[in-house]
């Protein structure tokens, strides 16, 4: 066993040396800073990092902060609707385009284009569209429909859905592109066989084609989930967390405490909570993607 290992290392020595810089970067730049943040969350750091240890105090304060709890609640609502709508819409768009429509490349470009835009721009555009003084409501009033109300960005009860609309608009093109790529990879023989068997098209998509696209589906879900967790710029551009704290999100809570409120301890505690949440959500996905598959293969 030991001899085998030495041989293995010797044979691949060059490869290991070549990988070394990347390993150093990963260990110090990524894992190191992550560990440093987690460490700081157990300190009483305010403006400057401190090296003391205060146990879980910051975490208790964190979960006693109404704004943090609001942010978490908002994130759950956004995650649910955003994932659901974005994914369903993306799949449908892909399937429609897959019907060999005329001007396919035009549609593809149009649907994917929002994704090329930064979240800040997307947020600002939707802020203007939904702003009662500038956007659709203003136009409708100008046309004489004075009873028309579309005040989502200024209405605390609806503002989250305004954010969801903007993010869905931004993200569904990505799902479309990924799923479409998968659809194009489906063997035409399968389509021919189902046609001979007389299976309705919707049934083929639902029961045969989509299950075949599992990797694409998982990839798009992972990408969407990541954009939910790091959601910050779109909220800042669109509502800045308002009205009140109605559209606050965790990432904004972290940034505010880090840079405006000189509260590094609380901010790192919040980011640690986010990190753990992400790991908990991602673990099963990563497991099923990589480990189980390679286990089956060997």
């Amino acid at each position: 066993m030991g001899a085998e290992l030495t041989r293995h290392v010797k044979r691949n020595l060059v490869a290991y040396i070549a990988l070394l810089p990347m390993a150093v970067v990963v260990i110090f730049a990524y894992l190191g800073t992550m560990a440093w943040s987690v460490r700081l969350s157990f300190s009483s750091s305010k403006l400057l990092p401190k090296n003391d240890f205060v146990g879980l105090t910051q975490y208790f304060t964190l979960f006693d902060t109404p704004r943090w709890l609001t942010s978490l609640g908002n994130l759950v609502i956004i995650a649910f609707f955003f994932l659901l709508i974005c994914f369903a819409l993306g799949c449908l768009l892909a399937i429609f385009i897959d019907q060999n429509v005329r001007g396919e490349s035009l549609f593809r470009t149009v649907f994917l284009y929002p994704y090329a835009m930064s979240f800040v721009v997307a947020g600002l555009v939707w802020q203007w569209v939904l702003n009662p003084d500038l956007g659709i409501q203003h136009t409708m009033h100008g046309l004489g429909f004075t009873g028309f109300v579309l005040d989502w960005v200024v209405n605390p009860k609806m503002v989250l859905y305004a954010v969801i609309v903007a993010t869905v608009w931004h993200g569904s093109g990505l799902v479309m592109a990924l799923i479409l790529a998968g659809l194009r990879g489906v063997d035409t023989e399968i389509w021919r066989a189902t046609r001979i068997d007389g299976i309705p098209t919707w049934r083929v998509y639902l029961s045969i084609v989509l299950p075949m696209l599992r990797p694409m589906i998982i990839t798009s879900l992972v990408l969407l989930s990541i954009s939910i967790v790091k959601m910050y710029d779109v909220v800042v551009a669109m509502t800045n967390g308002g009205p009140g704290t109605a559209s606050e999100v965790p990432a904004k809570f972290i940034m505010d405490n880090l840079f405006e409120r000189a509260n590094i301890g609380l901010a790192t505690a919040a980011s640690t909570v986010m990190l753990v949440t992400v790991l908990l959500v991602m673990a099963p996905v990563i497991y099923s993607q990589y480990f189980r598959k390679s286990g089956r293969a060997s």
Binding site: K46, L47, T65, P66, R67, N257, E260, R261, A262, N263
Partner: peptide, 9 residues
């Protein structure tokens, strides 16, 4: 600043 931030919230 952190206290003032909570007040503003």
């Amino acid at each position: 600043e952190s206290v003032y931030g909570s007040v503003q919230d």
